[in-house]
Amino acid sequence: MKRLSYALAVLMSTALFATACGGSDALVLCTDAPYPPMEMEIDGEFTGFDIELMRAIADELGRDLEVNNIGFDPITSGLAMESGECEIAAASITITAERAENINFSDPYFTADQSLLVAADSGITNLAGFAGKNLGVQTGTTGEMYANANDPGATIISFENPGDIFTALAAGEVEGVLQDIVPNAEYVLNNPNDADLVETYPTDESYGFAVKKEGSEDLLKSVNEALAKLVEDGTYDQIYNDWF
């Protein structure tokens, strides 16, 4: 029994020690991969537009970047940042006023136009053509909001991730997908015979990096400064051209 309490005490102090020290000086980034080409894993390394941009920002801050593929739920609950699992999240997160009540966003770094993709054999050419049809969207995205606001009388089905939506598209469960242009364009590129991109809708919404609401003002400020510098010196465009 003695030994057990001793072990417990050691375990607890180790845990306390670990939390207190919080790892090295690397900037820990939370993301939700795969969401190509924004974030994905290639040969065991995380990369993609979000990740590489963030890496450049970490460079500017003089820190290494450590990627934690924690998933969308811990990020969208704010828990990943509040609990200190990571300092910042980059996961194609659309900036909305509602979200900004509970987390802070960096300056926008990417404009997320919406687009409509249809199954090649559906014969549908625009959003109005979805009256009475099934339209796939991704949960909690600008695409979902746009579809609901401009609903042509379709059944709008929300999926957790683009993979699920495209499986549903292939299965004929939905006739089209309304979401950010990035994953839609990527899908058409890879499956030119199965799907067509028929419409795009410019929205005023964009992606931002997310940090916790309180106690991250300094980080946010330096990230914004680094981002501005990267845009100015052309590094941003260089990374952009690598991925789009």
């Binding site: 969308f72 739920d73 969208t76 609950s77 704010g78 828990l79 909305t96 509602e98 979200r99 009540e101 509970n102 987390i103 949960t139 909690g140 929300s158 997310a210």
Partner: peptide, 14 residues
Amino acid sequence: ARDVMAAKVNATPL
């Protein structure tokens, strides 16, 4: 819950 969570960025719905 997850949908409300994604909209509000808060774990309360859980």
